[in-house]
Computed example of a mutant assay.
Amino acid sequence: MHEYSLKHLRCIKCLGRLEADILSQGFEIEEGFLHCKNCDTRFPIIDKIAILRDLGNYLSVRPRLGGELVLVSRTDTMKSFVKKALAQIKRGQKDLSVIEKRWAQIYAKNRNSKFYMTIKNVFDSANITGTAIEHGCSIGIIAEYLARTNLHVFGIDRSYHALSYAKKSYTENLDYFVADSQEHPFGRSKFDIVVALNLFELIEPTPLLKLLSRQVAWGGLLVISDPYDYERGESSVKTPLREDSVRAELEKNGLAVTKDTTKPSFIPWTLRLYDRAILQYKVDLIIGKNNRKRHAAKIKSF
């Protein structure tokens, strides 16, 4: 984790400022804790990745990851912290870490998909730079591209394994965090570019769009896409949105949908799962622009 990120981060529980208790440091903070002096909550930084979740709850559905975190921890202090979180886990819990590791590998094999080229072209055409955040950044394909032209870029994702892939490529102005978009660690900060690709099946779309819209600074862009694949069984969202309703929600939240994305699109997104299986989607791309009255700086924290 980069030390400069501290000025942007806030506690997900009380929105208090976070301080770093560093146990190991090189070019980045390699191991330590983000400590909220206001509510006394500590979030671990392990192998350069900050986990801004309650570690016990996070590992309760990722027990195998917990064992891996013990092994990669460099200090006895961190090993003890992770083991204490693991001790809270009940036997027989499902393990999402196996699935998350598999999908990180799949995205890594498909990083040259034409879909990503389409998204990259959006940023090239928009010619907007400054600060950016990507929700559900996975292995960092888009976040890494944004870092080429923006001052600071932040990526958040629920998957530690995905971010481990992302961190293999060191980028001085790019930082990643294990976090939930609904409880993100950026308080009231605003960004010039906000990105959320294909998340509607994982997070309730209506509150997600409201949250994302609030993060867009004056003159900034919100870039979202989705294939509207809501058939997820028990994991399905309660209130799906589709082409027209997504655009209506953006306008309701004060963003103007750009002319070239007012009509639904069907952008091919092909994922090769393995040699004998390919997953193909037709993805809808929507871009919202914040033309509301300018309040302050393009990124601000309280």
Rank of each mutant, 00 (worst) to 15 (best):
S225H: 06
P185S: 10
K293M: 10
S73V: 04
G32D: 12
G26A: 14
K84Y: 01
D275G: 06
K114I: 06
D275Q: 07
V223H: 02
L208M: 12
S189H: 13
I119Q: 05
K13G: 06
K83W: 00
K13A: 11
L9F: 10
L197S: 09
G187D: 15
F302G: 09
A179I: 11
V82E: 03
N291A: 08
L96W: 05
R10I: 12
L69G: 00
L86M: 14
S245F: 01
Q105A: 13
Y274V: 00
L96H: 04
V82R: 01
H295I: 15
V61A: 06
A143W: 02
R188S: 15
I133K: 02
T261M: 06
S125L: 08
D157H: 03
E144A: 11
I133Q: 02
T258W: 03
Y4K: 14
K210Q: 09
G155W: 02
G220M: 06
K293D: 11
E249S: 14
A217W: 01
D54N: 15
E234G: 02
E204D: 15
H35R: 13
R102Y: 01
A104M: 00
I12M: 11
V194Q: 07
Y107K: 01
L197W: 06
I49Y: 05
D21G: 06
D244G: 07
V70P: 08
T149V: 07
A166N: 07
E100S: 00
A108T: 02
Y281F: 15
V257T: 10
D226W: 07
F154I: 05
Y160S: 04
L52H: 03
I203P: 00
P205H: 07
G67W: 00
A147P: 05
L202Y: 05
I141K: 04
G26W: 13
R91A: 02
D124P: 00
V283A: 11
F186Q: 13
A126Y: 04
S245M: 01
T261F: 12
K252V: 09
K83S: 07
I142S: 04
L241M: 12
K300C: 08
S60Y: 01
W269L: 10
V283Q: 09
Y145M: 05
K120H: 07
K167N: 13
V72H: 03
K259D: 15
L96P: 00
Y107R: 03
D157K: 03
E30K: 14
R111I: 05
R232W: 11
R188M: 11
L279V: 09
D284Y: 07
D54V: 14
Y4T: 11
F266T: 12
V216I: 14
V223F: 05
C11K: 10
C137I: 02
L222F: 14
S164N: 13
S5D: 08
S125F: 06
N198L: 06
I46E: 11
E144S: 10
S164K: 14
T118Y: 07
